[in-house]
């Protein structure tokens, strides 16, 4: 976690106020003032993040309908969850989605960012183009993809004109999850293009120049100079992309409704449906906690793994 608190960054240590401690009187005054400044944020933080997080755990111990009164059932919801094949399918789908999506996202983002760093006109404009779907409404993005990928859609008719027989991208269980991943990568990798570009531009020109003079080829420069230098950006991008990936919902809901079968059902879609369509808020909360645990585990593993490949020395 320390990376993100900023305690390691140059900015954090230097100018913060407490560097000049004064009298005890002053310090007490700070406490009171701080309470005032913090109050709005802290109240909201407790009310809308801490309490719901705890509440989620409590609700998961109840059978809790939308209409009517809840009944305490202990760990029944969890017992049911571990015997529910649809849950495990949704979990597996979500894990596959998260890893494949994150990998494709980063590879594409890196490729485009490197390409935009070569000699070409209007790099800034192209970067903005790739960023576009990041901020257009996901629902609109997913709707047009559903139209394009449907059996009589644009993709199949384009394939037809070059003599390739189209596929039922959204209703064939072999392709449906891939279609959801493809749409999601298209939608989001522009974000990481910008993150990685920021990392690339921070590499001192002299270092690249020096390694060029050493007679290295572009691949070697990428592998041994550029990648290590931007590894903090990559680590950061992969962590945040992965966390975002576990929240996949709109794409599955709009493109395939989780089908065919359960082949594109995801944890958040399953959570939403159990809570708000099937009237089982308790069960949905149990799913929410499993989602929480999985995200925490994956993030912890990523942080543990960073020591091997992330290089913070410049």
């Amino acid at each position: 976690m320390e990376v993100m608190t900023g305690t390691r960054t140059a900015a954090a240590g230097a100018p913060s106020a407490p560097a000049t401690p004064r009298s005890g009187r002053r310090r007490r005054a700070d406490g009171r003032v701080a309470a005032l400044f913090l109050a709005p944020g802290l109240i909201g933080f407790v009310l809308f993040i801490v309490v719901p997080l705890g509440g989620s755990a409590v609700i998961s111990l109840y059978e809790w309908p939308l209409f009517g009164s809840p009944a305490f059932v202990g760990l029944d919801n969890y017992a049911k969850l571990f015997g529910d094949p649809a849950f495990f399918t949704a979990l597996t789908n979500t894990l596959i989605f998260a890893f494949v999506y994150t990998a494709l996202n980063l590879v594409l983002a890196l490729a485009i960012a490197l390409w935009l760093g070569t000699r070409l006109k209007g790099a800034g404009i192209w970067r903005v183009v790739f960023f576009l779907p990041v901020i257009t409404p996901m629902v609109a993005n997913a709707l047009v993809w559903r139209l394009m990928l449907s059996d009589d859609g644009a993709l199949n008719s384009a394939l037809g004109t070059v003599g390739i027989e189209g596929q039922s991208w959204l209703s064939d269980s072999r392709f449906a999850l891939a279609a959801v991943i493809a749409m999601s990568v298209w939608q989001s990798f522009g974000y990481n293009v910008v993150v990685i570009t920021a990392g690339l531009t921070s590499i001192p020109k002299e270092i690249l120049e020096a390694s060029r003079i050493d007679g290295t080829n572009p691949w070697q420069r990428l592998r041994h100079t550029i990648l290590p230098m931007i590894s903090p950006s990559l680590f950061f991008a992969s962590t945040m992309t992965m966390i975002g990936a576990f929240q996949v919902f709109v794409q599955a809901q709009v493109l395939t409704q989780g089908g065919p079968g359960e082949s594109t059902n995801t944890l958040v879609l399953y959570l939403y449906r159990n809570g708000f369509s099937f009237d089982r808020l308790g069960y949905a909360s149990a799913i929410a906690w499993m989602l929480f645990v999985v995200v925490m585990l994956v993030t912890a593993v990523q942080f543990a793994g960073q020591r091997r490949w992330v290089n913070y020395d410049k």
Binding site: S150, D151, S168, S171, V254, T256, Q257, G259
Partner: peptide, 8 residues
């Protein structure tokens, strides 16, 4: 008949 898409 043709098989439909799930989201149809």
């Amino acid at each position: 008949a043709n098989a439909p898409n799930a989201a149809d």
